[in-house]
Design a protein around this nucleic acid. Structure first.
Lengths: 247, 247
DNA sequence: TAGTGGTCTAGACCACACT
DNA sequence: GTGTGGTCTAGACCACTAG
């Protein structure tokens, strides 16, 4: 977890509604309450925590605003299936991006290596120790043109299933999004001229201006994944929308 | 206001705490309650709206989470001085950026024109009509190197004071941030090779990869400003942090 | 010390959606 | 119909802090 988030973490003892919020969040993030599952009713949670329904309501309302659960009258509260976590910094999965352009999508895995985390990796992803990781390189195509180069580290301590995953069905990004929900993310975005290797892989001339996006995600303190996406040229645009009051 | 925000807008009649929230937000955004000013106490607002303190508390707590007000026990609630609106997509004002690098900062206005909005402008900033606008070009320096090129439109219908402003004290970005708070913003980020004109202004060779950031801001439905920032080369990095549960 | 916000209660009524 | 969440009340106690 990055320093900026650590600094924000409160050390004060949590109020009851914060505790309820945290415990439910933890159950959702751990997968104990899987997507689609109905969580206990307000009155059940109120009985469990020996508190009034209002206190539970405050916690559940916040979870709903954060997009972790969906609340339906008469039906109950359900863990969200496709968490719309990237609502603010819109980075949809690459397949949707390509298909939105009207092009056919495919991807290939260029390299895949299982190894132990090195100090250099921890520099890229804080919270990554010397545990096992998967190091992946992936190329995404839009029709017959390379669309994006993906260089990724996956922390196997956090997502052990990734060790044997072939990523035949879904690219690593989508696979992880469905499997390892995150609580905080950081993006670093810059324009970079393509170096020789990346230029060749993206079929552009060396030095072409590329949009390089590095994304780090954590679940609590645990590092989930680091990815560097390189989009060739100025065709790709990253869009971020933001309103301080979420409504 | 962009479509995406319009679609989110609820047409349902607001609940009481939503109405209170909205009315206080409007007074802050209009400047009626200026930064630093103390807004009425919870019990005063409860009396004014003929409701319980809890209902007022819900509205004020949300405003505090959104960063529009600061709450202090025994003292009251105060309109925030420097709204930390860019908490998620960190784009601090350019002066701070440069000084954080340890370089001396200065900026100059290269062009400044007052004119009426044209259809082409509305394409850049939705909600901009045919009213008067200011069209600015600005160059920011870090020590003796150009740091950023700023091309900006300011909607004078929303911020009439900008008409006669010389921007001698503060660059337009900081000036606007202090004067015209916004409720929603959109960023578009891409890597672009510098064209001849921009390359010359930024003192790089034509074709150099640049980070181009377009930012649009609105206050409610009203367009405030459009700005295109061009950072030369790969020295500049844009950082965005995000946690769904704001705490 | 006094007054503010932070939290919580034990009710209540209602709209809505499911049966 | 019936049960859920959405909202609101009229209290209450406490922690914090400004004066």
């Amino acid at each position: 977890m990055p320093q900026a988030f650590k600094a924000e973490r409160t050390t004060a003892i949590p109020s009851l509604h914060e505790r309820i919020l945290g415990e439910i969040e933890a159950r959702i993030l751990s997968g104990e309450w899987a997507p689609g599952v109905r969580i206990p009713f307000e009155h059940e949670l109120a009985a469990h925590y020996h508190c009034s329904r209002m206190t539970v309501n405050k916690a559940l309302s916040e979870l709903a605003k954060a997009g972790l659960i969906e609340r339906r009258r008469k039906a109950g509260s359900f863990v969200m299936r496709a968490p719309s976590r990237s609502a603010i910094l819109e980075i949809p999965d690459i397949k949707s991006e390509v298909e939105a352009l009207g092009a056919s999508y495919r991807y290939e895995i260029l390299a895949r290596r299982r190894r132990r985390g090195a100090p250099a990796d921890a520099g890229r992803l804080e919270g990554l120790g010397e545990g096992p990781i998967v190091d992946l390189t992936c190329r995404h195509w839009a029709a017959k043109k390379p669309f994006c180069l993906e260089e990724r580290l996956i922390n196997l301590s956090a997502t052990p299933e990734a060790a044997d995953e072939e990523f035949a069905e879904a690219p690593p990004g989508s696979w992880l999004l469905a499997r390892a929900p995150w609580t905080s993310a950081e993006h670093r975005i810059r324009a970079r001229p393509a170096d020789a290797r990346r230029a060749a892989l993206l079929q552009v001339s060396a030095g072409t201006a590329c949009l390089a996006i590095e994304r780090r995600t954590w679940s609590g303190e645990a590092a989930i994944t680091y990815v560097r996406l390189t989009y060739p040229g100025d065709a790709h645009e990253l869009i971020a929308r933001f309103s301080p009051l979420q409504r």
